[in-house]
Amino acid sequence: MRPAFPLRQLLGVLLALTTVLHWASTAAAEDLAPLLARIEQAYGNVTPPASIMQRGRTISQMQGEGTLIRAYRGPERFRIEIRYPEGTEVRIVDGARAWQRNKPMSEIFRGALLLQAARVALPWNLLAARETLRDGGEHAIGEGRLHFIELPLSGGLKLVVEVDPESGLIRRSRGILAAENGSEMVFGTIYEDFRNVDGRRYAAVEHHFAGGRYIGRSYIEDVEFDLPLPDTLFRPEIPGMI
């Protein structure tokens, strides 16, 4: 019988990460091959999409409920737009530049957006980088087990993906961002309610964490792949900006 992963179990060791990163070693492709094959089977079409558009709603612990739009066109071109009753939050990364509400932002802010873009592109970016993955092994989570895989990203960023080894589904991910003082910022996501669209599987419910705190959840109600997303989506709306 495949182990169940209730939300309370997935919450259990969400932040138990540093020990894995210290001893995980680069995995030979053949070592992770059986698990990657189960991921491929679980998610259907594993060809990396040229673009991803997600629409839905999000519930923030701080700002309440808002409508959600995410636009992804590669690992360094990403936009998230949330329309709350009190106003609209827009965050954009385009290569070396990042903005929030049309204001240029720091490299740390850019890194956080790159981690979010990498999360949206799961599992396709994970499968495409199989030669650079790091194997964290299996760990007991409640009554089941999850297999930890580290996906190294550009600029020293890391994404740790936790996979149900029986179903091949990604149940949790953690983005790791090095802060200026040498500490690490951890952004966690728990995935639930898996659905299919255009031959690809995705999680329709996401629970979000930052620094060990629960910060809200998102409901992905519509997903489209390989749309021709225009460059203007990844530019701030500033007069005279090219």
Rank of each mutant, 00 (worst) to 15 (best):
G111E: 06
L229Q: 09
I220D: 01
V20A: 11
T47A: 13
F187A: 14
L177R: 09
G95P: 11
M62K: 14
S25R: 13
H22D: 15
S183P: 12
A71V: 03
V20Y: 02
P236L: 07
M53L: 15
P34H: 11
G136L: 00
M105Q: 15
R73N: 09
R235I: 00
D198W: 04
V161C: 03
R195D: 12
L229M: 07
G182K: 12
E162A: 13
V90D: 06
P228N: 11
L233T: 05
A121H: 10
R134C: 02
F109G: 05
I141T: 14
A118V: 10
H208F: 03
T232K: 11
R83S: 13
I39Y: 07
T232D: 10
R110T: 08
P3I: 01
E40D: 12
R130K: 13
L233A: 12
T58H: 01
G87R: 10
L233W: 03
L229K: 04
E162S: 13
G144R: 04
T132L: 02
L157H: 03
R235L: 10
P239E: 07
L229C: 08
E30G: 03
E184R: 14
G111S: 07
E143N: 13
A50P: 04
L7D: 04
H207Q: 15
I59K: 13
I92D: 05
A112F: 00
D198M: 13
H22N: 15
R97M: 09
E86D: 14
F78Q: 11
V90S: 06
L15T: 15
D94F: 08
W124S: 04
R77V: 06
I238N: 03
E150Y: 00
P104K: 08
E30N: 08
S173D: 13
E192G: 12
E131W: 01
T232F: 02
I141F: 00
L153Q: 08
T232V: 08
R83P: 01
Q9A: 11
P228R: 12
L7V: 06
V161P: 04
P3K: 02
V46L: 04
H147E: 05
A210P: 00
L151Q: 03
E131Y: 02
T47L: 11
P3Y: 00
A16K: 09
S60W: 04
L68A: 08
P6W: 01
I59P: 00
G144I: 06
L133Q: 03
E192N: 12
R213Y: 08
E81I: 09
T18C: 01
M185V: 15
R195H: 12
L157N: 03
I69H: 04
T67V: 14
L15D: 15
A210D: 05
I59V: 10
L35H: 12
P6N: 07
G74K: 06
G95D: 11
E221W: 00
